[in-house]
Amino acid sequence: MTETARISYRIRFPAKAGTYGEFYSSNNGTSEWGELSKIKALITRGMPKGYKGRILEPFADYEVVKVTEHVRTETEVVTL
């Protein structure tokens, strides 16, 4: 039995708590990123809006949430 921890980061808008738009999601549906540097790059670049994402809107009123997921793997031999 092994136990590992998966860490991911999400961008949360506290003003939209409990609604569909509480967490930022990219155009391809990604709402979790594995590295903090990718979150920083996204925040400095801004949110793509408008026609094909050509307009970049700066992030405002956001917080970065760190999500830690503990995964336990068990192996069992089954006889048939």
Rank of each mutant, 00 (worst) to 15 (best):
N27C: 06
N27S: 13
L36Q: 12
G50Q: 06
K40I: 12
G50R: 08
L36T: 05
P58E: 05
Y62W: 13
Y24H: 11
N28Q: 09
I55L: 10
K52V: 05
I43W: 07
D61G: 13
D61K: 12
K38R: 14
P48R: 02
A60T: 10
K38T: 10
G50S: 10
E35C: 11
S25H: 05
G21E: 08
K40M: 05
M47F: 07
K49V: 10
R54L: 08
L42P: 01
L36P: 08
G21I: 00
E32Y: 11
W33C: 08
N28C: 09
P58A: 06
E22M: 14
T44A: 12
L56E: 02
G21T: 07
S26H: 03
F23C: 03
R45L: 13
G50M: 04
Y51T: 06
R45C: 11
N28A: 11
A60W: 00
I55S: 04
E32P: 00
L36C: 05
E35I: 09
N28Y: 05
A60L: 09
P58D: 06
T44D: 08
F23R: 04
F23H: 02
P58T: 03
Y24M: 02
E32G: 00
L56P: 00
W33G: 06
I39Y: 02
G53D: 10
A60N: 11
I43V: 15
L36A: 06
K49S: 11
G50L: 11
E57I: 03
D61P: 01
G46T: 06
T44H: 15
T30M: 12
G53P: 03
Y24R: 01
G29I: 01
R54W: 03
G46N: 08
L42T: 08
S26K: 02
S26T: 13
P48K: 07
N27G: 08
K38Q: 15
I39M: 05
N27T: 08
N28I: 10
W33D: 05
K40C: 04
I39D: 00
M47N: 08
G21V: 00
E35A: 15
G21P: 00
S25V: 05
T44I: 11
I39S: 08
A41H: 09
I43K: 04
E57M: 12
S26R: 01
E22K: 04
N27E: 12
K52F: 14
G50A: 09
E35F: 15
F59Q: 05
Y24A: 01
K52G: 05
K40E: 14
L36G: 07
L36I: 15
I55N: 14
G34E: 12
Y24F: 15
Y62K: 09
S31F: 14
R54C: 03
G46F: 12
I55M: 03
G34M: 10
N28E: 13
G29L: 09
K38E: 15
W33Q: 03
N27R: 11
L56H: 11
I43L: 15
L42D: 01
F23T: 05
F59E: 00
I43P: 03
Y62Q: 04
L56A: 02
G29E: 05
G29N: 03
S31I: 00
R54V: 00
G46Y: 09
G53Y: 02
Y24T: 06
L42H: 01
A60M: 10
P58Y: 10
R54E: 12
